[in-house]
Structures are given as structure tokens and as C-alpha cells.
């Protein structure tokens, strides 16, 4: 059983949803980044999502852009990031880890080489933010060959046939964008329960909501809308930049507590 499947099964037994914590690899620098990842685990995150920083992150808002800028300035490279991931995997053998990144970093390394590197570093999934389902075929093939789960994005406006293709081709979980726009921490969020219901009806990989999740009440709302979990990103990277890993651990603990209804 994959780490994602094992995690969702375990949480289902307990009546909990998954909390995913996001960090940008190499932010604020290569050593302190390790402490941040460990703080996510210590706070109780069920799954870890990491960014490999890209110079032109069009799907990201200011907080994650700033994290990418810091990481690149600190010398983060894809090769260095795979090294950080392998070390993380050695410290934490069981927690699912997914990469979120952009297409040019994948094709620059060579699609297959990128997914093979991810697999070798103990990574469970790869999501490429600027590869929609219609362009996904060669990425899916490389992922399959490397036995890495390709995570696809579903949006509230995704039409039926595309959603069916996402449900059929995605693995691990389905990343549901909770709203239009780019990543960012919102004061209030509105969840599209219809999207989650449509994905459930299509037997898609478990729907996990991202974009805007920054407060425990968002977590509860997402779960009430039917989500199998949530991912919080911008709130974490901002908190990490302002107050460091210990504050992140506390934030994650509060968010995780909200997954236990």
C-alpha cells in the first residue's frame, strides 16, 4: 500500500481528515529548511508537501513567491532539493511526501530523470502546477515508470469530461483548488462542496483542498464540505519567515486538531 493510501486508511479509522503542511525547500536556507520540515511533522502534519523553488511561479501568490526567492537566493537547486528530501525520508520513513513545482524544472532535468530522482529520494507524489490535465500525458507516463504518484489539480470550473480524466489519471490524492486565483492565506474561504461531490462520484483519488487555508475554522469547513484533507501553504511559509519553526509547530498542531471532528 502506498504511503498516501496507508495514511488515508489510518485517518479514516480514527474519523480524522488529513492535514498537509507545505514548505519551500531551502527556505530560508538549506539548513534551517530541515528544521522547518521537522516542525511540520512534530506539529502533527499527516502529509508533507514541498516546493522546489522556480524563478517564475505563476500559480503562486506573494507569500510563496517570496519563499521561492529566499530559497533561490540561499542556493537551492533541484539537485540540492532531492538531497534534502532523501535526508528527510531517512528521518521520517512513513509520512507521505509530495513535490509541488513547475514544468520547466521538470523538463530541464528530463521528465523521466526528474521523476526517477523523486522516487530515489523517497518522494511519493509530484504535482506540476502549470501542467493541466490536457498536457499531462508525458508527465503521467514518466511518473508511472518511476512509480511516483502524479497528483492532478481539480478546480471548481473544471468541466465534466476533464474532471473524469483527472479522476482516472491522478494518483495519491486530488488537489482541489478551493477558489479561483493563486495561492495565498485568506481571511475567509468558501468551499465548493459540489466539486468534492463530483470527484467522489467519479471515484477520484481523495480530494484534498488547498488555496487560502490558514485558520482552524477553514479546516473544519473543508471537512464539512467533504474533503479528505487540507493543505496549508502560504500561512506556513509566512509564519516560518516571521517567527520560525517553533511557531510553525504550534500552528500545525492547532490546524491538525481541527481535523478531528
Amino acid at each position: 500500500m502506498s504511503r498516501y493510501a496507508a495514511m488515508f486508511a489510518r485517518l479514516a479509522d480514527r474519523g480524522e481528515a488529513a492535514f498537509g503542511g507545505f514548505a519551500m525547500l531551502g527556505d530560508p536556507d538549506l539548513e534551517a529548511g530541515d528544521a522547518l520540515l521537522d516542525a511540520l511533522v512534530a506539529g502533527g502534519a499527516d502529509m508533507i508537501e514541498v516546493g522546489i523553488p522556480f524563478s517564475d511561479p505563476v500559480a503562486d501568490g506573494p507569500a510563496i513567491q517570496a519563499a521561492a526567492v529566499r530559497a533561490l537566493a540561499a542556493g537551492a537547486t533541484p539537485a540540492g532539493c532531492f538531497g534534502l528530501l532523501a535526508a528527510f525520508r531517512a528521518r521520517h520513513p512513513d509520512i507521505p511526501v509530495g513535490i509541488l513545482t513547475y514544468a520547466n524544472l521538470v523538463v530541464a532535468r528530463g521528465r523521466q530523470a526528474f521523476y526517477d530522482s523523486a522516487a530515489a529520494a523517497g518522494v511519493d507524489s509530484v504535482l506540476v502546477a502549470d501542467v493541466p490535465c490536457a498536457e499531462a500525458a508525458p508527465f503521467l507516463a514518466a511518473a508511472a515508470s518511476a512509480s511516483v504518484d502524479p497528483v492532478l489539480i481539480a478546480a471548481p470550473n473544471t468541466p465534466g469530461p476533464t474532471l473524469a480524466a483527472i479522476a482516472a489519471a491522478g494518483r495519491g490524492y486530488t488537489y482541489c483548488v478551493a477558489r479561483a486565483g493563486v495561492t495565498g492565506a485568506d481571511a475567509e474561504v468558501r468551499f465548493d462542496a459540489a466539486l468534492i461531490a463530483r470527484l467522489r462520484a467519479l471515484d477520484a483519488p481523495p480530494p484534498v483542498l488547498g488555496f487560502g487555508i490558514s485558520r482552524p475554522e477553514h479546516v473544519r469547513q473543508a471537512i464539512e464540505a467533504g474533503a479528505a484533507g487540507v493543505i496549508s501553504g502560504s500561512a506556513i511559509v509566512s509564519l516560518a519567515a516571521e517567527r520560525g519553526p517553533e511557531a510553525v509547530r504550534g500552528f500545525v498542531a492547532a490546524m491538525k486538531a481541527a481535523t478531528r471532528l
Binding site: D130, A155, T158, I166
Partner: peptide, 22 residues
């Protein structure tokens, strides 16, 4: 899409899924 949007191997539509309907 009604067309491939390709010029040989080049082109395509590499955007976040949310922009595809637009």
C-alpha cells in the same frame, strides 16, 4: 480545446487547470 495548439513539438497550453476553461 478544439485544436492542438501545436507548431510541431512547440506550443500547447501549460497553465494552471483553473485557466483552461477561459
Amino acid at each position: 480545446m478544439l485544436m492542438s495548439g501545436r507548431f510541431g513539438a512547440y506550443g500547447g497550453a501549460y497553465v494552471p487547470e483553473i485557466l483552461m476553461p477561459a
